[in-house]
Design a protein around this nucleic acid. Sequence first.
DNA 1: CGGGGGTTTGAGTCCGTTCAAAATACGTGG
DNA 2: CCACGTATTTTGAACGGACTCAAACCCCCG
Lengths: 244, 244
Amino acid sequence: MYRHVPLDEPPLPELDCSTCPALSMSEWRVLTPAQVKQLSQAKEVRRYRRGDSMYRQGDPCKSVYCIHSGTVAIRRTDHHGNAVLLELKQAGDVMGYRACFSRTERHNTATASDEVIACALPGPAMFALINDNPMLGHAFLARLAHELARAHDAILTHTQLPVRARMARLLMRFVERRSLPRSSTEVQIHLPVSRHDLAELLAARPETIARTIAALERDGVATFSGRMATIANVSQLRDEMDCG
Amino acid sequence: MYRHVPLDEPPLPELDCSTCPALSMSEWRVLTPAQVKQLSQAKEVRRYRRGDSMYRQGDPCKSVYCIHSGTVAIRRTDHHGNAVLLELKQAGDVMGYRACFSRTERHNTATASDEVIACALPGPAMFALINDNPMLGHAFLARLAHELARAHDAILTHTQLPVRARMARLLMRFVERRSLPRSSTEVQIHLPVSRHDLAELLAARPETIARTIAALERDGVATFSGRMATIANVSQLRDEMDCG
DNA sequence: CGGGGGTTTGAGTCCGTTCAAAATACGTGG
DNA sequence: CCACGTATTTTGAACGGACTCAAACCCCCG
């Protein structure tokens, strides 16, 4: 845990934010070239291996992170061990800002879901950039507002829809993000996480996920093989999204 | 709906933000006296009657609101009619800013739960204040971050805890907000909403709420009479908050 | 070839729901 | 102030989706 410079790994690459492909997807895109250089100098590149946690509930908030590559799972756990996977962060996503803005300790845990390279930017450096460039503040206001809407959506879907419909919605999100079209109606997607994580994403048990997948195959909606899924008919999947 | 100046009502009071008791509880508390005057001139006082909606899902976002008195219910509804009561806003709360910051239409509906007097501040006026005073931007960043944490909490509790524990948590929130101590262990609270709204707050059915209340009384945790509730032993209620 | 973690299947249970009806509270007009 | 009609709340019985516990299965890797 917390290791980010294993001895037996190749040295971390030097990353320049101004040429980073993640820049245009992140909140930093509103910065001027000079401010990007400032960002680049203040940041620190880190590597995390599958299972490493970047921060944990209760930690003080020292930095925000910008993901260069890999997938990070953001989880909230209660003191009974029940966990919910709140979201998956990927390349170009900025994460870990919530605790900085509310000036509280971390309320959830960030875990590398596979090999992750991310840059850590100290909180004060971010606040300095916001003071220099009000557009960055607005970008974070918009981002937080968007996240809040998504969280409210999750409350609604998790409490009102059966697991099967929630699964359909999740699959549709993966389809929209990046799918390999195989024919006019058929698409193939790569599930970025294990069944266990799928369960935590949908606030259900792994057994229920297995059963739901089996039911989806039985009904000819999709076929699953490991982390590959082939949706037979996207519009049919869309119909599953409301009620089941 | 949308009516806020009924003909048969007394005229709206002239309200001056600088003397408003809600000021110190709202985000506007970071403003200078001159900026408060600016706020006061830009705002418009409105009155809503029980059941009136202040805005609805799908509306464009024109203003943010600052509640002077009364209770407002913020709801999210899906196109099947399933509704969740996301939160109750009361005197001193600012509301309706989420859609402004994300520059999207309203994602939920705000309904007056009883007689409400609130001030509407046009979105552009708020943005002007934020530009004049960066502390206001930070205050909203902190507020949004806090709301996001609360929403994530709700996801966890709604999916992991039984209704009875969720009810205990809600009652505790009311106790902490304002309770009338009757003895060392016994407190009395006023439930600000109907059973139906209680159900929507807990993401359950009214029938389940009635049964849960009956069970709580049977077990001697609390007694209920209309909108009055007497908690026999607060620490006993606290024990109910995790699992049931 | 033999672990071992992750995944799947099976059987039984429980919590909350649904549907329906009774009871209570509420507001209005007489 | 009481009677009435309506809305809200409560109770009852039956159903169902997801959970629990347990065992079998499978695939990857040593």
